[in-house]
Design a protein around this nucleic acid. Structure first.
Length: 194
DNA sequence: CTCCAGGGGGCCA
DNA sequence: TGGCCCCATGGA
């Protein structure tokens, strides 16, 4: 079955998943919803979204949901705030690095620069580019591989990240909205443990 | 009790 | 490159 048909099937079965950007409506003067997405992309590394939400809420309550604040706040304070998201020592350090990066590159980050950051791998970099900056980039994760395997694409499911990414990007129209929803639907599908 | 979540880095052969 | 181990909380 073709990737686009699988997508349509998933959309009918599960409906829109409302991933980012959704309610990034934490309205405060100068609030940049993109940075909330970036923080979420880091905090959700190998972590359930439920635990991440608590951490993001804490950051918001303490006015730490922007690059300048995260850069300036003491590491310990950051760690305690994101404690619920797990790996909190590593992630606090990652947030510091990412915050500094976005303070310096206010414009549009490219994939190579993101990947050069400690704590940002391919999936996180691509999630940031897709969900925060609306680039038509297909995000690959473990569920993507399971989906391929479930559709008799065992060989491809075991290929490296960029090969799978390239497969979907060439088989689908280059549409950020589509890639956004597709990745979310794949994750949703994966949770059903089919 | 075990298993795993919207991964990534370090190390070693 | 590929295989392991480590990071850590919270829910099922």
């Amino acid at each position: 079955m073709l990737p686009l048909e699988i997508y349509k099937q998933l959309l009918v079965e599960f409906g829109p998943q409302h991933w980012w950007p959704k309610h990034c409506d934490k309205k405060r003067p100068g609030f940049d919803p993109r940075f909330e997405i970036i923080v979420g992309a880091v905090l959700t590394q190998n972590t359930s979204w439920k635990n991440v939400e608590k951490a993001i809420e804490c950051l918001f309550e303490k006015n730490l949901l922007d690059a300048e604040s995260i850069s300036k706040t003491p590491l310990r304070r950051l760690e305690s705030c994101i404690h619920s998201s797990g790996y909190y020592r590593q992630k606090a350090k990652k947030l510091k690095i990412v915050a500094r990066f976005f303070l310096e590159h206010k414009k549009r980050p490219n994939r190579e620069d993101l990947l050069s950051l400690w704590g940002v791998g391919k999936e996180t970099a691509d999630s940031i580019l897709l969900y925060a900056f609306n680039h038509p980039i297909f995000v690959v994760d473990v569920y993507t591989r399971r989906l391929l395997a479930a559709h008799k694409q065992k060989k491809l499911s075991e290929a490296d990240y960029d090969k799978i990414k390239g497969f979907f990007e060439t088989q689908l129209p280059s549409d950020a909205k589509l890639f956004n929803e597709y990745h979310a639907l794949i994750v949703r599908w994966g949770k059903e443990k089919i």
